[in-house]
C-alpha cells in the first residue's frame, strides 16, 4: 500500500470501477474485502447500502466515490452521513450525467439560504 494514508473506495457500474481500478485504487485487505463494489443489474439496494455503510465504518477509507444514480438509491444513508471523513463524492455514470441539484453536499449548502437570514 502506498504510504500509510487512507484508501479511496468506489461504488459504481462496471466501467467506472474498471477505470478507477486501472488508476490504482483497488485493494483487497487481509480479510479479502475489496474497497470497491461493481453494481450490476441484479445487485440489490440492500447490498449497496450495506457496502456503503461498511465503507463508512472502515477507518482505512478516506474518500468514497459513488455513481450519482446509485447514490439516489441510498440517498437516506448518504444524507445521514454528516462526518467529514470519509468524504462522499458523487460522480456521473455512463447513462446518467451529473446533476448538481441532486448532490447531497450542494443541497446542504443551498439549504442554508433563506430570505429571512439576509434581512
Amino acid at each position: 500500500m502506498a504510504g500509510r494514508g487512507k484508501l479511496i473506495a468506489v461504488i459504481g457500474d462496471e466501467d467506472t470501477c474498471t477505470g478507477f481500478l486501472l488508476g490504482g485504487i483497488g485493494e483487497l485487505n487481509k480479510n479479502r474485502k475489496p474497497n470497491f463494489l461493481v453494481v450490476e443489474k441484479d445487485t440489490s439496494i440492500t447490498e449497496i447500502e450495506e457496502t456503503f455503510k461498511s465503507f463508512l465504518a472502515r477507518s482505512d477509507i478516506g474518500i468514497i466515490l459513488i455513481n450519482q444514480f446509485i447514490a439516489e438509491m441510498i440517498r437516506h444513508a448518504i444524507d445521514a452521513h454528516m462526518q467529514s471523513i470519509p468524504a462522499v463524492l458523487e460522480i456521473p455514470s455512463k447513462e446518467h450525467p451529473y446533476d448538481a441539484s441532486k448532490d447531497s453536499i450542494l443541497r446542504r449548502a443551498k439549504g442554508m439560504f433563506s430570505a429571512e437570514d439576509f434581512r
Partner: peptide
C-alpha cells in the same frame, strides 16, 4: 480483475 490487489494510491487527510 486480479485476485491480489494492492492500492497504488492513498489519500492523506
Amino acid at each position: 480483475y486480479a485476485n491480489e490487489m494492492e492500492s497504488l494510491v492513498c489519500v492523506h487527510s
